[in-house]
Design a protein around this nucleic acid. Structure first.
Lengths: 340, 340
DNA sequence: TTGTAAGCGTTATCAT
DNA sequence: ATGATAACGCTTACAA
C-alpha cells in the first residue's frame, strides 16, 4: 500500500511541500505553469490526499456515525440507505454502529463515536434506553446529534419521525371500519417514543368510534421472539378473545401468525391482522395483511440533511425542529375492507 | 467538542507528553506512582486517545471498508450484520459503501476506500461489473481484499460463497420430485459468478432426472423491477408454459407473483414458485413458497475473519482459500411436496 | 510566487 | 524514570 504523498511530489519536482499543496487545492497565489507541472506529477504518481492527515489537522473526519438497534431490520437498512445517499452526495462517509437494542452497547457505541471523532451522529435509540446522559454529554460538548424514529425529549435537537400517532390511528380505524370492535395492540418497549405515540393513536381511534379502551388488549414486549410469543399467548388466553390484532412490527406480525396457526385460528376469518411494516416484499405477504408503511428511506434522508447542515454550520444559531413524515396505509385485499 | 489530549494531561501534571504517553499504555519504564497520577488525571479530564493521530502515525485506520450492491437488501444487510459483529469484537470499525449495482459507482467506491486508507476491503461485486482492474490495482498495492458472495476469478484472494450450485440443484430437484418437468429458471446478471453456479446446479438436476434442457426456460434479468416484469412476461408468452419457476431472489419472486396474479395463474395449482431467498419473515410468506436460504450472516462473519487475519498478517504467506457454505432448503407446506 | 516553519495528537528514539 | 525531539501528511501564517 505505498501511496504517494505531497512530499514525494515536492521531491520529484524540487519544490517545497507548501507549493505543491497550494497547487493541488486553492489555485490562488500560484504560477499556472507550476500548477500544471504539479498536477501532472500528482497524476503520474497517482497521488491521493490522505484524509487522515487532513482530519488531524482540521479536527474533523468527514464521517458521520449512525447508531441503530439492528442493521438487519428492513426499517433501519432502508433508513441507512437514505442516510448513505445524502452523505455520499455531500462528501461524507457513514460509519455504522449497532446497539442490538442494548443500553450498554449503545453507551459503548457513543464512546467509540466520540473517540473516532465523527463530525456528527444520527441515532435511533435502543429499546432498553431509558436515560440519555451519554448523549447529553456528547451533545453539550458540541457534537451535532440528530434523532430519527426513536428519540428522547431530554435532548434539544432535530428529530425526524414518522407520524406514528396518525399511522396507528388510521390502522386501528381501518380495523374498526371493517367491523372489528375488540382490537388488540401489540406494542414494543414501553420506554420508546414510538410506542407511546402509537398507543395514543390507537386509543384515539377507539374513542372516536365509541369503543371502550380495554387495558388487557394492550401488550408490550421486547424484541426477542420468545418474549413475543409468550406475550401473544397471554393475549390469546384471556377470557375475551380479540377480533383483530394490530402489531407494531413485522417480527411481531410473524410471531402472531405462528401462534395463530398453532391455535388453528384462521386469518382473516377468525382474526384480522395488521400493523406497522417495512417489508419491500408486500406482494409476497398474505394478501389480507394490511400494513402501515413507514417512510424509512425518507426519514434517513431528512435526518442526514439536517445533521450535515448542523455539521457544516449552515445556520449559526440552529433552530431545532421535529419533522414528522406521514405513514402510508396499504390495504392489499380490498374485497375484505368493505365487507362485514 | 473539546476533548482532552495527552498535552493537557502533561500540562496539568507538569510532566512531558512522553511520560504521559508511557503511563497511558505500555507500563514498562514508568514509576508506578507517576502512572497512578496520570491515569487519575486522564480519568478526570475524560481523556480519550485520538484514533486519527494514531492512524496517521501507524498508517492504519482500524477500519475496514465494505462494498455491497445495496444495503437495503436482506441478504446484504444480514451479511453486514455478520461483518460488523466480527469487526466490532476485533476492534475495527466498518465503513459502508454501496455500488447500487453500478460499475462506475463501484470504481468510485474503491477510490474512496483507498484514499480513506481502510485496512482492508470486503466486497461483493456489482451486477454490472465485468472487469476488475480497479480491484486488481488496489490488491497489487497490498490492500487485503476478501470477496463474499459475488467474486471475480481474476483476483487471487479469499472468497466466501454460498453453495449456489447445490442450492439450485436441490431446489430444482425439489420441483422435479413434486412432479414438475417444465421448470423455468429466472436468473440475475449473466456476468455474476452466482448466476453461473446456479444455472449449473439447475442443469445438473434436470440432467439427473432425464429432463431435457430448454434454453427458452432460462431468462436473465437485471435488478430493475421493470426489467424483471418484462422478462417474466416474455417467459409466460412462450408457446410452452412452464409448470414451475425457480427464481434467484426475493424481488424476482415478488415480480413473478405480481405477473402471475395479473394473468390469473394460480400458485401452486397452476404454477409452482420457489427460489433463493433471504427474508426473515418466512412465516409471513405464502406457505407454498419453498425457498433456498443463504447463510448470509455466516458468510459475512467468515469473510470478516479472513480479512482481519490478512490485515493483521496472522499468516505471513497467505494461502488464499475459497470457503463454500451450505444453503438450506426450506419447505413450508409439506403437504404439497409429496403429492402429485 | 515560493519557501520556511509550526502545528494537529501520538509514539518511538535517543538523550539525560 | 523522565524529558526532548522527530516523525506521520497536510495546511497555513509568515518570510523572503
Amino acid at each position: 500500500m505505498e501511496i504517494a504523498t505531497i512530499k514525494d511530489i515536492a521531491k520529484a519536482l524540487n519544490l517545497s511541500t507548501s507549493t505543491v499543496s497550494r497547487a493541488l487545492r486553492g489555485s490562488y497565489e500560484i504560477n499556472p505553469e507550476t500548477k500544471r507541472i504539479v498536477l501532472e506529477c500528482a497524476e503520474k504518481l497517482n497521488y491521493r490526499p490522505n484524509p487522515i492527515a487532513l482530519s488531524l489537522k482540521e479536527n474533523r473526519s468527514r464521517a458521520i456515525g449512525v447508531v441503530v438497534p439492528e442493521i438487519d431490520n428492513p426499517f433501519f437498512s432502508q433508513a441507512i440507505n437514505g442516510i448513505e445517499a445524502i452523505a455520499y452526495n455531500r462528501g461524507y462517509h457513514v460509519v455504522i454502529f449497532q446497539s442490538h437494542e442494548s443500553y450498554d452497547r449503545e453507551v459503548v457505541n457513543i464512546q467509540h463515536l466520540a473517540s473516532r471523532r465523527v463530525d456528527g451522529v444520527l441515532i435511533s435509540l435502543s429499546g432498553q434506553t431509558t436515560h440519555v446522559e451519554h448523549l447529553k454529554e456528547l451533545h453539550t460538548k458540541g457534537m451535532p446529534i440528530v434523532f430519527f424514529d426513536r428519540f428522547s425529549d431530554e435532548i434539544n435537537t432535530h428529530k425526524v419521525v414518522a407520524d406514528n400517532y396518525q399511522g396507528a390511528f388510521e390502522g386501528t380505524e381501518h380495523l374498526i371500519n371493517s367491523g372489528k370492535k375488540h382490537i388488540a395492540h401489540l406494542a414494543a418497549s414501553p420506554t420508546l417514543s414510538i410506542t407511546r405515540e402509537r398507543i395514543n393513536g390507537y386509543k384515539a381511534a377507539l374513542e372516536k368510534h365509541g369503543i371502550p379502551y380495554n387495558e388487557d388488549f394492550v401488550k408490550y414486549c421486547n424484541f426477542s421472539i420468545e418474549d413475543m410469543e409468550k406475550v401473544i399467548d397471554e393475549l390469546l388466553s384471556q377470557p375475551i378473545l380479540p377480533e383483530a390484532i394490530f402489531t407494531v412490527s413485522d417480527r411481531l406480525a410473524m410471531a402472531c401468525l405462528k401462534i395463530l396457526k398453532k391455535r388453528n385460528i384462521r386469518i382473516p376469518e377468525d382474526m384480522a391482522l395488521m400493523g406497522f411494516s417495512n417489508l419491500k416484499v408486500a406482494e409476497l405477504l398474505s394478501p389480507s395483511f394490511t400494513s402501515v408503511i413507514q417512510p424509512a428511506l425518507e426519514m434517513g434522508q431528512r435526518a442526514a440533511e439536517l445533521l450535515l447542515d448542523l455539521v457544516e454550520k449552515k445556520s449559526k444559531i440552529p433552530v431545532y425542529q421535529t419533522i414528522t413524515l406521514p405513514t402510508e396505509l396499504v390495504i392489499r385485499d380490498s374485497t375484505k375492507t368493505a365487507s362485514e
